[in-house]
Amino acid sequence: MSASKKNTKINDNQEITSLPDLENWVLRLYVAGQSPKALLAFKNLKIICEEQLNGRYQIEVIDLLLNPQLGRDDQILAIPTLVRKLPEPVKKIIGDLSNTERVLIGLDLLPRFK
């Protein structure tokens, strides 16, 4: 269990083959080094995705210490930040994602499962 140092695709084995009858999720997690907060955020994100998205997702982890210029396009200020690139609209969730309910609200997932 580790946050990758490079842009890494995790758990995308069904991404290409699955038909987009439901949205295909693209999530991007911005971190700065392997800080405890970053590791915690990645762990929390994994759990939520597994529980809620049933494999139709793709997570990119971007380490701004290694690729600082990438933070510009997504207007990243806080670390860690989770960006929902797809489905649109773009959503941003900041923090270590330890409050699952707020993460789900942030990802527009909560009303669906209520």
Binding site: A32, L40, G71, K92, V103
Partner: peptide, 28 residues
Amino acid sequence: LEHIHIERSEIEETGEYDLEGLLIRINL
């Protein structure tokens, strides 16, 4: 010139964070 966009409605806060991203951008 660099525009830093920040929009309350687009941001959901969940737990601890810091502004390392901003510092990295300024530094860059």
